[in-house]
């Protein structure tokens, strides 16, 4: 049962320059209602992350096989198979795996369960020393997953941040009821707002564009500190019509700044760790020339742009 008084996150980036103004501490919340095909953290989508397996760190000691009651782990001709569906995230295999004990760097572990559940107060105390450096230099950014799904617990956290004058930012895909925004926006200084009119082929698993647009219309009545974020995925979001749609929406809401996120060609890391396939096939990165073209199109419409580094 969902604990509305706790926040679930799967990662903290203590110092990032890519997620809002200045240097940010970014908290990535667990759980997403979308399954965007270009998503680079598929493990963030479920309510709690499934067990992640980094093959290169496994020494095939097979302790996990004997310890797991659900028979999640099995070996066939030296290949370690994991039946994620049967996994109850009990953590027994990790506790007994000598290759999974690096508490500092999860990526060095063979097995790992990245989701942490924590009260807003505890989370705040954990990040406060770092945030105290960022009140002028940047602030905190809540990303995900879809952070708005945890808006109730998140408000508690953001209130604490504001009590210490720490700038706050939420990055959202906004494919959620507007009621989720109605209380929280008072505690958010800046929004990183995903806007992606995807073509029909990919629309099914992506955001409900009408809902997102409506939410943006409503949110922009409260605040203009909204940065529009557009992923640049070849054949999915890059047509001039799609850019044109974005321009219209931004004009309508008198928003003037957009960040463009080039496709990350190294996304398959977590897919592999989850044992699933990346559904996007083929070359999905845009050439610099095409990225510039999109920038020009936006700039001509008086929208400032910044292309983020991968």
């Amino acid at each position: 049962m969902e604990n509305l008084n706790k926040i679930r996150y799967f990662n903290i980036d203590w110092s990032s320059k890519n997620d809002g103004k200045g240097v940010r501490t970014v908290i990535f919340l667990q759980g997403c209602n979308l399954k965007c095909p270009w998503c680079h953290s598929p493990h963030s989508q479920p309510y709690t992350s499934p067990i992640l397996f980094n093959k290169q760190n496994c020494i095939q000691c097979k302790k996990c096989v004997s310890i797991c009651q659900q028979n999640v782990h099995s070996f066939k001709s030296d290949t370690h198979y994991i039946n994620i569906d049967a996994c109850t995230s009990c953590g027994q295999c990790i506790e007994h795996c000598n290759q999974s004990q690096n508490i500092y760097h999860n990526s060095l572990n063979a097995l790992n369960l990245p989701t942490t559940e924590i009260t807003p107060e505890k989370l705040f105390n954990k990040v406060l020393p770092q945030l105290s450096l960022l009140s002028n230099a940047g602030g905190v950014t809540i990303s995900g997953g879809e952070p708005m799904l945890q808006h109730k617990a998140l408000i508690q956290f953001l209130k604490l941040c504001k009590s210490k004058s720490i700038p706050t930012t939420i990055e959202t895909s906004a494919s959620v009821p507007f009621s989720y925004f109605s209380d929280i926006h008072k505690y958010v200084d800046d929004w990183l707002f995903g806007l992606r009119p995807v073509n029909n082929t990919y629309a099914k698993n992506s955001a409900d564009f009408n809902l997102v647009t409506n939410n943006l219309n409503k949110l922009s009545r409260y605040t203009k500190s909204i940065t529009i974020r557009v992923p640049l995925i070849k054949g999915v979001t890059d047509s001039s019509e799609q850019i044109h749609t974005i321009i219209n929406i931004m004009h309508k809401n008198r928003l003037t700044y957009a960040e463009l996120l080039p496709f990350n060609p190294y996304t398959d890391h977590y897919y592999k760790a989850m044992g699933i396939e990346l559904s996007l096939k083929g070359e999905r990165s845009l050439s610099n020339k095409n990225i510039n073209k999109i920038c020009n199109q936006l700039n001509k419409a008086h929208i400032k742009t910044k292309v983020l580094k991968i």
Binding site: W14, S15, K17, G22, V23, L133, L134, A137
Partner: peptide, 18 residues
């Protein structure tokens, strides 16, 4: 040590102050 991708002048000032 801070990698170059994660610093800013304001961050350093805040670090000195703190």
């Amino acid at each position: 040590c801070i990698p170059r991708e994660a610093y800013s002048q304001d961050l350093l000032i805040a670090a000195y102050d703190k």
